[in-house]
């Protein structure tokens, strides 16, 4: 298990592994938004939590197609499927590795990029907390999407079409926590919902991912 985790992490950090790409994309999105809506700081402060969430979501999406595709090409997915380790666990670990290399850096970068967007100081901690709670769900859902489309030659666009609607609940509750936090409102309900969705997705979705991956490997 740990060997698989380490292997995935090592592959991600190696050149061409795409570790920095997600972060760079996140940065570009946050730079492009003020350029497109104008530089008024009051407007930016209002929409900054939403932009950070949207940027994190898209950066996450960007790295999904390489989550399983490389292992599919060199045949190591077949090895994983026949290994004594249950495929559900293996996919859970791969999702965790994806979160460590994509989700966690985004969480850590969010406060810095928040400065660029004039994010109110009261909101910073809530943005970080909501991203911390929400991004694991994004990785697990993304793994499901990657498992669905892994056998397809040009699955990239289809992957986004399949995965983005599944991101909706997480996005709504996550952005709601950040938005309410930034204006000092009560955040208990959306925070609990966000955590609940993440917990349920982490617990249940690996089974669905493993099921579709087995179909694709047949």
């Amino acid at each position: 298990m740990i060997a698989l985790l380490l292997r995935d992490l090592k592959l991600a950090f190696r050149a061409g592994g795409g570790f920095g790409l997600g972060l760079a994309f996140f940065l570009i999105v946050t730079v492009l938004v003020p350029l497109s809506v104008g530089p008024q700081t009051s407007l930016l402060a209002l929409i900054s939590p939403g932009i950070l969430w949207l940027g994190a979501l898209l950066a996450n999406l960007l790295s999904l197609d390489r989550l399983l595709a490389l292992d599919w090409e060199d045949g190591s997915l077949d090895l994983l499927a026949t290994a004594p380790l249950p495929l559900e666990v293996a996919l859970g670990i791969k999702a965790f590795a994806h979160w460590l290399t994509t989700g966690l850096p985004l969480v850590l970068a969010a406060p810095v990029l928040g400065v660029l967007l004039n994010l109110p100081t009261a909101g910073v901690s809530w943005v970080v907390i909501s991203l911390l709670l929400g991004t694991p769900a994004l990785s697990v859902i993304g793994t499901f999407g990657a498992a669905l489309t892994v056998g397809l030659k040009r699955g990239g666009l289809l992957l986004s079409l399949l995965v983005l609607p599944l991101y909706v609940p997480t996005l709504i509750f996550g952005a709601e926590v950040s938005r309410r936090g930034a204006v000092g409102m009560d955040v208990t309900t959306p925070l609990l919902m966000l955590a609940g969705i993440t917990a349920a997705a982490v617990a249940l979705l690996p089974y669905a991912s493993a099921a579709v991956l087995r179909v694709n490997l047949r």
Binding site: P169, F173, P190
Partner: peptide, 12 residues
């Protein structure tokens, strides 16, 4: 997820 979205949107 569609059901979840329905409740999320209601809340939103």
């Amino acid at each position: 997820f569609a059901l979840l979205s329905r409740y999320a949107v209601n809340f939103w």
